[in-house]
């Protein structure tokens, strides 16, 4: 039995301990916002946060996240009086019209949110080091602009 919290909700699943978190989220819990891209942690489309840290869920067995707090893209926006309030990162993504096909952006947003939480003013090298997700549409110039717009010293 795998037990962990997803976006604040306790979850208990009768699944194999080696099932990657990605497939537990998508096929067992029906949370489709987290995407499958490569299956080997090479692209970051499946990035979620485990206790606030960015983790590539396609290679993370559920046995390794027992008892942890998982945050997925569905849990990023905050519920305020019954309506979803986008986070500053999500709003910046709209303001800078970042997504194109959008498929990688769930993972991108989870990775960037984790980065800015840990380091509110990342420089270019820190951004490059932390955000290694692939975007095939090449939205990188806008991603960088959006991150910089969120910098607290901007």
């Amino acid at each position: 039995m795998a037990r962990f919290r997803v976006n604040g909700v306790e979850r208990e699943l009768d699944i194999e301990p080696d099932m990657p978190l990605l497939w537990a989220l998508r096929d067992e819990l029906g949370l489709k916002g987290t995407k499958f891209g490569c299956g080997i942690a090479a692209c970051g489309a499946c990035t979620v946060q485990v206790n606030g840290n960015p983790v590539r869920s396609c290679v993370t067995p559920v046995s390794a996240i027992e008892g942890t707090d998982i945050k997925t893209i569905e849990g990023l926006a905050v519920d305020v009086g019954g309506s979803k309030q986008l986070t500053a990162v999500q709003q910046a993504w709209i303001d800078h019209q970042v997504p194109q096909c959008g498929y990688c952006q769930s993972g991108m947003l989870m990775a960037v949110s984790a980065l800015l939480e840990a380091n509110p003013n990342p420089n270019d090298a820190e951004i490059d080091g932390a955000i290694t997700n692939v975007c095939r549409c090449g939205t990188y110039p806008r991603i960088r602009r959006a991150i910089k717009s969120l910098s607290t010293t901007a």
Binding site: G30, K32, G33, K35, Q97, V98, P99, G102, Y103
Partner: peptide, 21 residues
């Protein structure tokens, strides 16, 4: 003009073929 498809692509609700249920 802001693209109409972008809001769903920042909150995880945009559905792709892989998400068919």
């Amino acid at each position: 003009i802001a693209r109409v498809d972008i809001p769903a692509k920042v909150d995880g609700t945009a559905a792709y073929g892989i998400d068919a249920e």
